[in-house]
Amino acid sequence: MNSNIYLYILVAFVVTYLIRVLPLTLIRKPITNRFIKSFLFYVPYVTLTVMTFPAIVMATGSVVSGLLAAVVGILVAYFTENLFLVAGASCIIVFLAELLINVLKG
């Protein structure tokens, strides 16, 4: 079983690596097709949003702290545009909210 794990890792690595490297190495000229260009422009924003919502709300102990994390994250991002501050603020608000919820629960 133990030796199999390396094979599992290898299989996962080969698939993941090909997915990421093939487009990057095969597409070496600027894409001129307007639709593809526009499509690729929107992809990152859509994927990241889809992965964040509703997952962030469900990631913590309660929906309340998850929602707070999202709201605080958006506000801090809006005013500071700082990646680290946003991530830190979201974590701290969840920690505090969960603490408060547990106190209120007694």
């Binding site: 990631a59 913590t60 946003v86 603020a89």
Partner: peptide, 19 residues
């Protein structure tokens, strides 16, 4: 409770990229 709080950090980063 620390593990729970840290679990939203990644999403915070996604938000910081999109906003």
């Amino acid at each position: 409770n620390i593990v729970t709080a840290l679990s939203v950090g990644l999403y915070g980063m996604f938000i910081a990229i999109v906003v």
